[in-house]
């Protein structure tokens, strides 16, 4: 069930009329948002979903604006999603990666950011392997900083797109039972989703082996389960996290096959969830490790493709509102 929208595909004026000014200078953390703001962002993103399904997808909300994608970690979907979002809104988009920049020559993150900042970009989208990297940049540059993932800390646009996927599938988010399963310890996706979903009134469970759970995770306002079958019982949404395969080396888990047996999602375990349960995954998937292909590819239960589509729309909403704030100044 999809949330009601204006009939027909929205035109530029329609979306422009709905665009509002983001209340913060930067988009860093799901914890900075509030339920009303999230609702407005998701409504706006719904409009962009419809727009993106049209032949002409372009709007000029960001015309003349420059967006720099600064990705220190390899990323396919997030980077291309921000790139498409920027381009569809009419911005000039530049992609930077460490291989092609002076980071490889020993320049520090802040130096790189300050250098890029001097080129007068309007929005800097950053992904970095260290927690707090986006917040550090936000303190050092004058443009808007968008956190596209910082270490094991936050990935707020992912949480927004996950929320939008759920809202479109169930018509609501509050009251849903969402089981976030797998490597919560190292997951920025899990942290942002816990923050956002609990804020919106969802019942959140985290499920995984104790070695992949953060310290005192029970105090995050979630239920903690170590048994997947119990953890997903009756859940409306089963969100599987990617298992970094190098985790095997640190004695966090013994093997892929044991992980799949105990914490991997297959049809049999999914039967324990709610009959209408939907399966999500932030990607990229390790098929046969955290999720069985049989489940991942079943369009009747899997929202994984929807998540990717929502990703572009949500990022358009984030960029459009940040730009609206710039226009107002």
């Amino acid at each position: 069930m999809t949330r009601p929208m204006a009939p027909g595909a929205p035109g530029a004026d329609d979306v422009r009329a709905r665009t509002f000014s983001f209340p913060h200078r930067h988009f860093l953390s799901a914890a900075d948002l509030d339920p009303v703001l999230v609702g407005d962002l998701l409504d706006l993103a719904d409009g962009f979903v419809a727009l993106n399904r049209q032949q002409t997808k372009k709007l000029d909300l960001l015309k003349g604006r420059t967006l720099i994608n600064l990705f220190f970690e390899a990323s396919t979907r997030t980077q291309s999603s921000f790139e498409l979002a920027g381009k569809r809104l009419g911005a000039d988009v530049v992609n930077m990666s460490p291989r092609s920049s002076s980071i490889a020559k020993g320049e520090t993150l802040v130096d790189t950011a300050v250098t890029l900042n001097a080129m007068q970009p309007d929005i800097l989208v950053i992904r970095h392997g260290s927690s707090g990297a986006a917040s550090l940049l936000a303190q050092k540059v004058s443009c808007c900083v968008v956190n596209a993932g910082d270490g094991a800390h936050e990935h707020p646009s992912q949480a927004l797109l996950d929320t939008l996927s759920m809202r479109r599938a169930f018509g609501r988010v509050g009251g849903l039972t969402v089981a976030i399963c797998g490597d919560v310890l190292h997951s920025r996706v899990a942290r942002s989703n816990v923050a956002l979903l609990t804020m919106l009134g969802a019942h959140v469970r985290v499920v995984g082996p104790p070695t992949l759970m953060p310290c005192d995770v029970g105090r995050w306002g979630v239920e903690v389960h170590h048994d997947l079958k119990v953890g997903i019982a009756g859940a409306d949404v089963v969100m599987m996290l990617r298992l970094q395969l190098e985790r095997m080396e640190g004695a966090l888990i013994p093997s892929k096959r044991e992980y799949f047996r105990l914490w991997g999602l297959d049809r049999e375990k999914l039967a324990l969830a709610s009959p209408d349960a939907r399966v999500m995954h932030p990607g990229p998937m390790n098929r046969g490790v955290e999720i069985d292909s049989d489940v991942a590819d079943d369009l009747a239960v899997s929202l994984i493709q929807d998540q990717v589509e929502m990703g572009v729309a949500v990022r358009m909403a984030v960029l459009a509102t940040l730009a609206a704030r710039l226009d107002n100044r």
Binding site: S131, G151, A152, P214, C215, D216
Partner: peptide, 15 residues
């Protein structure tokens, strides 16, 4: 240090 706080910040911690 290993704690709820450092867990939320996503920092590698020691007990």
């Amino acid at each position: 240090t290993e704690s709820e706080f450092s867990g939320r910040l996503g920092l590698a911690s020691e007990p």
